[in-house]
Amino acid sequence: MKRLLLLCIILSCVACGSDPIPKPKAMLRLDYPEPKYKGVDIRLPFTFEKNELADPITKIKLDGVNNIYAVDIEYPKLKGTVYLTYKKVKENNLTNLLRDAQNLTQKHTMKADEIEGDIYENPKKKVFGMFYEVGGNAASQSQFYVTDSINHFLVGSLYFYAKPNYDSIYPAAVYLKNDIKHIMETIEWKE
């Protein structure tokens, strides 16, 4: 009996080690190449620069009657697309275009944790608008609109090909957010 008790004491001393220490939270590390931008001047009423990481623009929808153009900028390696929609400003429709663009962003409030808006102004190029960053598991993480308030109005949205899981797509969303801001900053209207 004494031997059994002694054996239990020895085993309990040997079996016990130091207290476990929790490991720090890890973040997924994805390295994307430094962006290289190239001018895009295709059959549109505006020009801009896009990241060379994106595929060449092949999806352009033109509606010359209503002056509506749609362009898809696809990033297959990031599994995302930036959708651009251009509409001609006509007599008294600027208010409706602005309301529609803002409502498009507000539709994400059900799933979004937060929506932050930044005003963008470039008086020299006559480009004015808003950039929205949507946090959380919303369908679109970045959206914007720009206009010259007289002739041109452009809306852009980022969507991924996967179910929205903000933690998983966060690195790609940040990378593409910077691309979208670059698109906004390089837009020039064709008169």
Results as ranks from 00 to 15, higher is better:
residue 65 V to L: 15
residue 173 A to S: 15
residue 121 E to A: 14
residue 184 M to Y: 00
residue 158 L to A: 03
residue 29 R to L: 14
residue 47 T to L: 06
residue 24 P to M: 07
residue 46 F to H: 01
residue 11 L to H: 07
residue 107 K to A: 09
residue 166 Y to D: 13
residue 39 G to D: 10
residue 185 E to P: 00
residue 42 I to V: 12
residue 83 Y to K: 13
residue 78 L to H: 00
residue 105 T to M: 08
residue 42 I to S: 12
residue 145 Y to N: 07
residue 6 L to R: 09
residue 67 N to S: 12
residue 149 S to K: 13
residue 41 D to A: 15
residue 49 E to I: 01
residue 150 I to G: 06
residue 67 N to L: 09
residue 112 A to M: 01
residue 168 S to D: 10
residue 66 N to V: 02
residue 6 L to W: 15
residue 61 K to H: 09
residue 172 A to S: 14
residue 110 M to K: 14
residue 174 V to K: 15
residue 55 D to Y: 02
residue 44 L to K: 03
residue 161 Y to H: 08
residue 148 D to I: 05
residue 138 A to L: 01
residue 1 M to G: 13
residue 140 S to I: 00
residue 181 K to E: 08
residue 9 I to H: 05
residue 31 D to T: 12
residue 59 K to Y: 06
residue 104 L to T: 07
residue 169 I to T: 12
residue 26 A to W: 09
residue 122 N to W: 02
residue 108 H to I: 02
residue 81 T to I: 11
residue 3 R to Y: 12
residue 114 E to M: 12
residue 171 P to R: 13
residue 84 L to D: 06
residue 69 Y to F: 12
residue 15 A to T: 12
residue 88 K to D: 03
residue 150 I to E: 13
residue 14 V to M: 07
residue 165 N to P: 06
residue 73 I to E: 02
residue 101 A to E: 07
residue 164 P to T: 00
residue 137 N to S: 13
residue 115 I to H: 05
residue 35 P to E: 01
residue 139 A to N: 08
residue 116 E to K: 15
residue 66 N to P: 01
residue 66 N to D: 06
residue 136 G to A: 04
residue 122 N to M: 00
residue 81 T to H: 08
residue 30 L to F: 03
residue 125 K to Y: 09
residue 98 L to P: 06
residue 190 K to A: 00
residue 173 A to Q: 01
residue 85 T to G: 04
residue 143 Q to E: 11
residue 34 E to S: 10
residue 140 S to A: 10
residue 154 L to W: 00
residue 130 M to G: 04
residue 93 N to Q: 07
residue 37 Y to H: 01
residue 13 C to M: 14
residue 87 K to H: 04
residue 14 V to C: 06
residue 188 E to S: 14
residue 189 W to H: 00
residue 175 Y to F: 13
residue 123 P to D: 05
residue 90 K to T: 11
residue 16 C to A: 14
residue 49 E to M: 14
residue 10 I to M: 13
residue 90 K to R: 11
residue 150 I to H: 12
